[in-house]
Design a protein around this nucleic acid. Structure first.
Lengths: 224, 224
DNA sequence: GGAATAGTGTCTCTCAGACACTATGAC
DNA sequence: GTCATAGTGTCTGAGAGACACTATTCC
């Protein structure tokens, strides 16, 4: 009675970062070239099977994939959505529990062969339904940028308010009033000034450095 | 290489409704008594295995469970979260893709034996990690009530603004200003008046009847 | 008329947006 | 001093909260 054929169970991760050069706007997502069938040679999201003997839960699977395939540890990881259907994998009925993660630009370091950062504006054709997964992740990240501290996880330990403003702009794709932004962020209180620390600017006034008040995501207040 | 032992794959549904009697505040959730091990005799969320030969995707599984076990069709169904871990099911590593659904009070009709509506304020001990699933569903529904038309799916085809206000209050557990609520909702424009139709009140002024502008969830505007 | 609920007008306070202004560094 | 960027002050308009008020039904 309880023995049904089981679907394939995988975890895929949409890993976001920003280009280090401020000149290039917008988010980038990590793609790896598939080395096996199906979709051999196609770019895909990093992912893998749930290892029932190794992983305590699906978040563990996500972290194992990121650490093993890419050697990164991410400051922010969130479950995105689960894509489970008959058609999404030619090998059969499969469920992918998708996560997304934010990685500071500085932590980019060396990528293994076959992995690359791709601007979300110019995505190639992806394996499986991964295009849809990236699309949903982008919607989530952009939506959360309007009411949470999420974009701050794209920055390193310390950052200036202008840098934070820049990150929000690049994630949102719009430029709200900088003065309003400053007041709004300061009112939310999820960042605290690092006393006495200032940015080293090329040829202008240095800016106060801040850090996150805590490692958690903070949502802004909302009323009906 | 690609043959890993697969986790169990199930779908569970948190089905919400309101008591018909306006006197009783708050949401109710549907529980069914488990008739098999594990957790035999314990109340649990309606759910079941993914049937790879029957279900096109996990939303199909959710609808099949609701139709088969309870004979209901729901006007709103949304994927909630996936709970996948080694420990959540004594039979082994398991993934439950959880959904939540909203059912108008009037559609309650006859429930099968072993099923019952339970106020969320007085939940018993549940099977598996279902208490955590209900908790997350409640957080989602209450959060969405602050910025979307979600609570409207707890009402029937037509409803009055005072009824809608009552539903939002019961979901949110608070009583915002009724005048502000009216203005806010009218500005969002997700409900339209049914021309010439009014409620039949016992001994007071009848109210304008409204219906949803479309069958989709509508999110309110938000700025940063 | 009174009771009860539906619905509006209006004041205040907060906050986003706009934008002019001042502040502080490098040179 | 100039240039560049950091950061503030202030006005305005939109909207939430509070609450007094009017409107329409049944009795």
């Amino acid at each position: 009675m309880s023995e049904h054929p089981r679907p394939i169970a995988t975890v895929d991760v949409v890993l976001f970062t920003l280009a280090e050069a401020d000149g290039d706007a917008g988010l980038r997502v990590l793609l790896v070239e598939r080395r096996r069938e199906p979709f051999r040679g196609r770019p895909a999201l990093p992912g893998g099977y749930v290892h029932v003997d190794e992983d305590a839960d699906t978040a563990d699977t996500a972290r194992r994939v990121l650490a093993g395939k890419l050697g990164v540890r991410v400051p922010y990881l969130e479950q995105l959505y689960s894509f489970g259907s008959r058609d999404r994998d030619p090998r059969g009925w499969s469920i992918s529990v998708a996560y997304f993660a934010m990685l500071p630009a500085t932590a980019g370091a060396a990528l293994p062969v076959g992995a690359r950062w791709q601007p979300v504006a110019t995505l190639p054709v992806l394996a499986f339904d991964h295009a849809g997964i990236v699309e949903r992740a982008l919607m989530r990240v952009r939506d959360k940028a309007t009411y949470s501290s999420l974009p701050a996880f794209l920055l390193g330990e310390t950052f200036t308010l202008p840098q934070l403003y820049d990150v929000y702009c690049r994630v949102l794709g719009s430029r709200p009033d900088p003065a309003s932004f400053r007041r709004k962020i300061e009112a939310q209180g999820f960042i605290v000034p690092v006393s006495g620390a200032f940015s080293q600017n090329r040829s202008s006034r240095p800016a106060q450095l801040y850090r996150l008040a805590d490692a958690q995501l903070r949502a802004f207040d909302r009323t009906i």
